[in-house]
């Protein structure tokens, strides 16, 4: 019973095996890819392991406090930012091994030529609640 975040990167992860930009795929390949992702989420709901999944717009803004009484400063997006998150899925699973297994399946989503994209997904454990018994 542990929650993990599966992070999908636009940029910043090592290159996948079948690394062709999506706009170079055929429309059917795009459809097949999206369907795979949806089916994956549905399947996890059915196994009782799905928590959340979201996609993010690629362009974001950097914001920071600029002192008392002043509006926050905004900046960016920065083209040179190394890491860019495309989206995530949160899963609630029995073990780290199960989380790795599921990340592997998600990374097998089909891409160009209908072949798995083998993209690198980042797996991050959530910090949990503290246990009651510690001594």
């Amino acid at each position: 019973m542990a929650k993990y975040l599966l992070l999908k990167h636009y940029r910043g992860a090592p290159k996948g095996v079948n690394d062709v930009p999506m706009e170079q795929w055929t429309p059917d390949e795009v459809t097949a890819h999206l369907k795979y992702m949806q089916d994956f989420a549905k399947r996890l709901e059915a196994t009782g392991e799905f928590v959340d999944g979201q996609a993010l717009a690629p362009e974001g803004t950097f914001v920071r406090y600029d002192g008392e009484g002043r509006p926050p400063i905004t900046d960016g997006p920065f083209a040179e930012t190394k890491d860019l998150i495309a989206g995530w899925m949160t899963i609630d699973v029995d073990s780290y091994q199960r989380a790795v297994e599921l990340a592997g399946e998600l990374s097998a989503a089909p891409g160009a030529g209908g072949k798995p994209i083998h993209e690198w997904l980042e797996l991050r454990p959530f910090l949990a609640e503290p246990p009651t018994v510690t001594e």
Partner: peptide, 13 residues
Amino acid sequence: LVPEATMAQRISR
């Protein structure tokens, strides 16, 4: 802290 649909599936499985 999981969606109700997920828990319902976990229980029915």
